[in-house]
Nucleic acid binder design. Sequence first.
DNA 1: TCAATAATAATAACGATTACTATTATAATC
DNA 2: GATTATAATAGTAATCGTTATTATTATTGA
Lengths: 138, 138
Amino acid sequence: MNTGVPQRKSTQRDVIYQELMKMTSHPTAIELYEVVRKVLPKVSLGTVYRNLDQLVSNGTIVKMSNGTSVRYDADMSKHIHIRCIICDTVADVHEISGDPIDTSYSELSGFKVISCNVEFFGICPSCLAKSMDKDLSD
Amino acid sequence: MNTGVPQRKSTQRDVIYQELMKMTSHPTAIELYEVVRKVLPKVSLGTVYRNLDQLVSNGTIVKMSNGTSVRYDADMSKHIHIRCIICDTVADVHEISGDPIDTSYSELSGFKVISCNVEFFGICPSCLAKSMDKDLSD
DNA sequence: TCAATAATAATAACGATTACTATTATAATC
DNA sequence: GATTATAATAGTAATCGTTATTATTATTGA
Ligand SMILES: [Mn+2]
Ligand SMILES: [Mn+2]
Ligand SMILES: [Zn+2]
Ligand SMILES: [Zn+2]
């Protein structure tokens, strides 16, 4: 078993993290699994899930969800996300001047704050174009 | 079937929305289902899911997710959320002065913006107290 | 009243995630 | 280097939130 606390070296975890770092697509566990398999063909999906959870727990990566899919991001630089409600693409918005939100808000409720996710929802340029095409053919 | 667009009157949808409005707990679909059953004992879980989706689609309510549970909120006033990573409680933070985030950030990526969710993650006062107790008994 | 069809209840199916278990890999001790 | 303890893994089964299906019911408009 593994409850996330003790941690010894693991080739699988290293590859999972390295491959995630290379990606800018905010992959799901399964999408990342397909990538990791190319390096470690015998890796199991459970190992990907377990290690992603660990990496999230110790603050090495972040995960986000819209209720449909859970996506992971190894980019810990300050940025927010926007997700297309049509195709589920997640794009980064790095051009943040100053703190996007005031962390002190959260302290009002007596919580010990660990992390924060700011996520916009909308329609991506590609899906916008497609819906234009559709409108024209009416 | 129902793809969310046409909409005629429905007792079930009214009760689902009314009961959600009474709650401040940000219930899951199943939690809300248990409440709605007390009013409409024959309601089906699928109806709750279908109508919640509809209400989200037309902007009447919002949903949020941390990857584990999807929760719904009928409170559309400007506020953000903080969720306990231990017990999954979601609390409101209403004391927002001005916009918590600058919506213009998202426009940089060419998306048509529809909504935004700001969610903090942390440990709630109750779970903090419990972890204190635990530490003492070590 | 009557047709058209949106919405529902009941149930089956699906799929992402988790749990389980025997085996393997790691790190510490001797 | 051998021994030991146990974290981590691969493979698989089980779980469970959500969707899909379908026959039936309710709503709306003519
Ligand atoms: Mn990102
Ligand atoms: Mn709220
Ligand atoms: Zn899109
Ligand atoms: Zn808590």
